[in-house]
């Protein structure tokens, strides 16, 4: 069981981690990073799967199904758009030699 003080410890340490990990991020990466963190909370998919696996009534199955559809959309969509944005950053780095004349 994760409860009581253990739960609070995990919560606190994870919160510090999140804060530290992006505290020195340059402005140019704000949008991709927001998109990337949006992808990471797509982990809600795992929870939605648990809920649907355990569903016992039609109502639970319907809500669970909607939950998994939404969560899968969050995870897959979040990945695709973040990847697309970051891909372009790589391309611009390679073209560096052309820039900065004079």
């Amino acid at each position: 069981m994760i409860d009581g003080f253990i739960a609070i410890y995990i919560f606190m340490l994870a919160a510090f981690t999140g804060y530290e990990v992006i505290s020195r991020v340059p402005v140019i990466l704000h949008t991709p990073l927001m998109s990337g963190s949006n992808f990471v909370h797509g982990i809600v998919l795992v929870g939605a799967m648990f809920a649907l696996f355990r569903a016992n009534s039609s109502l639970e199955q319907i809500i669970g199904f909607v939950g998994v559809v939404l969560a899968a959309g969050n995870a897959v969509g979040g990945y695709v758009v973040t990847e697309r944005m970051l891909e372009m950053f790589k391309a611009s780095g390679q073209k560096k030699p052309h820039g900065g004349q004079q």
């Binding site: 994870a14 919160a15 999140g18 963190s37 949006n38």
Partner: peptide, 9 residues
Amino acid sequence: AGTVVGSAG
């Protein structure tokens, strides 16, 4: 993952 995103966000 949720907490990390919560604080980073």
